[in-house]
Amino acid sequence: MTLAARSEPVAADVRPRAARDWTALVVDRAPFLVACAMLLILLGIYSTLQRDVFTLEELNLDTTASLTLLLAATGQTIVLVRGGIDLSIGGMISLGTVIAGTQFGEDPANAALWAVIILAIGVGAGVANGLLISVLRLQPFLVTLATWSILGGTALVILPSDGGSIPSGWTWFGNTGFGGLSTSVWILAALVLFWLWFRATRLGIAIRATGSNERSAYLSGVSLTAVNCATYGLSGLFSALAALYLVTQTGTGSPTVGNGYILNTVAAAVIGGVSLFGGRGGLASTIVGAFILTIIGNLVFVLSISSYWQPIASGVILLAAVLASSLAEKSARRGGM
């Protein structure tokens, strides 16, 4: 017996259905919209300095330049949405390139085997992060700071300086294309599809919920240990993927190359509007953020300014984005509730 058995018309006191609240939607997505506008402006400036910016070829080039960052930043985005941070990305990328550089050899089957091993190490290190964070109840930054050091140190032990070699088949795969689009664009498309799927899975929802309000999520039956292991495990997996793609571009193993990605992954996500406090943002934000960083790099190159300006620019933009969002958060809190 249920109440649905009633046959009278539903809801006697229906209020007029609230019109979709456009202002709120815009305010909510303000950081993302600002980032989009910024990307367009940068592209505009870039197109005045360089002919033929809005072409497939340029898309291929920029995606190839962004993809390592994008892959790693996808993992960082998941962690940020969970309300954590992963510094071990730096160590994992370095370790991945070093293992690839020293173990791949020329045999494709061997390279494939080691690629799988690298991915497994990524997942394993990430799950270890998640376990340490939940079981010992430690802060994410501290655990991942330590694992960053351990993974990065391992990379240095394996290969004290840049070296090793990547089989030509592997680099070919990273630099070829299908149907006019480079491999990187296809990978990006796959990444977008993954995200559209992932965010609607139970795990995806649980991760966002836990980042939004840990206690509510727990009261609703979420296991925090499982969520943490999955979150950091995915982050490790994406770092390993980033390393596997990176070696197609550099053709070598490098034991310190990953350190530059730590802040940049956070920057790409946060510039695009992912909240540092958990719960908000997604891959669209991170893609826009990563392309902003790449176009800035292009501009630095075209204007033949010292390339050392690039980290300064991304650091400053990151701080500006974080400041803006934390001020917005403050004023929103003051506004009531």
Binding site: I85, L263, V266, L276, Y308, P311, S326, L327, K330
Partner: peptide, 27 residues
Amino acid sequence: IGIAVFGVPPIIMTLAVNVILQGGILV
């Protein structure tokens, strides 16, 4: 000031300043 007054998380604030200084010295 970034951390205490503006509420930027310490890791982000100090890591960003670190990178900016690094770039500055390289330039």
